[in-house]
Design a binder for these strands. Structure first.
Length: 235
RNA sequence: UCCACUAAGCC
C-alpha cells in the first residue's frame, strides 16, 4: 500500500487528477494516507469543500482521521473560512489528544485567524506548550494584531524573547503588518534590520512588501527608487 | 519517516 500511495501522489503532482481518482478508486484498501493525499490535492487545487467532504466520507467508511488528516482538513477550512468544519475538526483533535502537537497547534492558530476568530486563535496560541517560529509567524501575519491588543513590534520582540529566530517569512509578515497598520517608519526599519542585523538577504517578495508599504503611504518617489535599486530577481 | 504547519501584492 506504501508504493500505491506514492503512485497516487505521482499522478497528483503531475496534475493528472482524473488518473489520480482512478488509482484511488482501484486501491483495494484506502488507508488514512491515501485519503490524506487526496484531501491535500483537492484543497491545493481550490476544491476545499470537496476536500472536506472527503474527510467526512473517509470516516463513514470507517477510517479514522489521523493527525495529518486534521491538519489538511484545517487548511481546507482556512482556505474557505469554513469555521463550522474547523470547529468539528478541533473537537476531533481534542478527542484524539492531538492538541499538544506543534503542527496541529500552528494550523489551528492559522485556521482561526483566517476565519476571523482572533480571540480563539490567541487562546490556542497561548495554550501551546511549545511555540516555534511558525507559530509566531502565523500570529504576526494572520490578521490585524490590534484585534487582540497587540502591535507588530511587541509581537516581534516577544517571539525573540521566546527563543524563536526570525526568518524570511517573519519579515514578510512583519513588514506587511506594518504596512497594514500604517507603521511606515517601522516597516522601513525592519526591512533594513533584516539584512543588517539578522543577515537575511531580502528576496523579491520582501521588496514587494516594502514597495507596497511605501506606495500605500504615498511615498512614490522612494518606492520607485527602491525598485530601481533592486538586484535582478534571484530565483 | 508513503501524505502534513506559517508566507507579499494584484484580482
Amino acid at each position: 500500500c506504501y508504493s500505491r500511495n506514492h503512485f497516487l501522489n505521482m499522478y497528483i503532482k503531475s496534475g493528472s487528477m482524473i488518473e489520480a481518482w482512478e488509482v484511488f478508486d482501484r486501491l483495494t484498501e484506502q488507508n488514512a494516507v491515501s485519503w490524506n493525499t487526496l484531501i491535500v490535492a483537492l484543497s491545493e487545487m481550490g476544491s476545499n469543500r470537496e476536500a472536506l467532504r472527503c474527510l467526512k466520507q473517509m470516516q463513514l467508511e470507517g477510517i479514522s482521521p489521523s493527525l495529518v488528516t486534521c491538519i489538511c482538513g484545517l487548511k481546507a477550512c482556512a482556505n474557505v473560512g469554513a469555521i463550522d468544519s474547523g470547529q468539528e475538526i478541533h473537537t476531533l483533535i481534542r478527542l484524539n489528544g492531538f492538541e499538544k502537537d506543534i503542527l496541529i497547534g500552528n494550523t489551528l492558530v492559522d485556521m482561526y485567524t483566517k476565519c476571523g476568530l482572533f480571540l480563539e486563535a490567541q487562546l490556542v496560541f497561548d495554550k501551546l506548550q511549545v511555540r516555534n517560529v511558525v507559530s509566531w509567524n502565523a500570529m504576526l501575519g494572520g490578521h490585524d494584531l490590534s484585534y487582540v491588543g497587540r502591535t507588530p513590534m511587541e509581537c516581534f520582540e516577544q517571539m525573540q524573547e521566546d527563543g524563536a529566530k526570525p526568518d524570511e517569512t517573519t519579515f514578510k509578515c512583519l513588514i506587511t503588518a506594518c504596512s497594514h497598520s500604517g507603521l511606515v517608519d517601522k516597516g522601513k526599519e525592519y526591512f533594513k534590520a533584516m539584512k543588517d542585523d539578522y543577515g537575511i538577504p531580502p528576496r523579491e517578495e520582501h521588496y514587494t512588501c516594502i514597495v507596497d508599504l511605501l506606495a500605500r503611504s504615498g511615498n512614490l518617489y522612494e518606492a520607485n527608487k527602491l525598485v530601481n535599486s533592486m538586484p535582478c530577481s534571484p530565483s
